[in-house]
Amino acid sequence: MRETSPTRGAGISDQLLEGILRGSRPHLARAISLVEDGAGEAVRLLSHVYKRRRMASVVGVTGSPGVGKSTIVNGLVGEFRSLGRSVGVIAVDPTSPFSGGAILGDRVRLRTHTTDDMVYWRSLATRGHLGGLSRHTGDVIALMDAYGFDEIVVETVGAGQSEVDIMKYAETVVVVLAPNLGDDVQAIKAGILEIGDVFCLNKADLPGAERTRRDIEMMLNLREESGWRPPIVMTQAHTGEGLSELVNAVNSHREYLVSSGLLEQKARQSHLAILNEYLSLLTVEKVLESAQVDGSLERALKDLSSGNSDPLTCASELVKRHLT
């Protein structure tokens, strides 16, 4: 017998915490579910977990659907393992807006290290959260960190142009691109192209790769000067070509963050962003709850449908009434 699985019931959060610190996979797995499901016990568990963080390095991998993110993540796992580092992976896929269900298919690409004890892979659904991640991504990172992984890799949903939440959680963001996904106007728009610390031009054997590389190069030339110019790494993830260069680029970025003192600043920004998220969540909950009780929500809805008021006025009045 490898491990005893956690049982439900009283004291579950203590049981899970103890299991996680002992390095039990079933306990880590169950703890993640508890947090994702927003169970009451999760609050207590997380309050302990955050104090036990060991500060693993977090790498984000993002990019449009089909550019090869999952295959790149599989490759990164292999590279980190060959350096003797343990790896936790969080792979996010979208939830259906109609049924609330999801098909989490990133594992299909995980072809190596599938039974490696030093690798843990977890698929998460967005469950309606926008921004390219699951609402609980930060908490799941904390759980994996407390468990003791050296590296945590977060793969976002196939991102369009504005799924930029990953920059709140990852120290280094790898933006994966493939050749011929749009002209050079795409490259100067705002959004995910702005958040890349490292660019990975995958499927580099396809025609058009060189042109796409030049487009990214041009875009980077127009960026404001800073101490870090994002490198462009050409990869062919399915053959492994370029993967060690990719890991080198990630490591160089990390060294830069440390030596420039930006790591601390980044952590502060990320804490602010996460705090922000929880503040909005809690205040919205509180306002809606008490507005429902005293009928002011109903009155606001009536005013809106009769055209007697506007959304901003209604919202300001509700906040004034219920948050003081």
Partner: peptide, 13 residues
């Protein structure tokens, strides 16, 4: 079918 029933499905490949 499981997805349409509101479940989260992990496909192994």
């Amino acid at each position: 079918a499981y997805r349409d029933a509101g479940m989260e499905v992990i496909y192994s490949g």
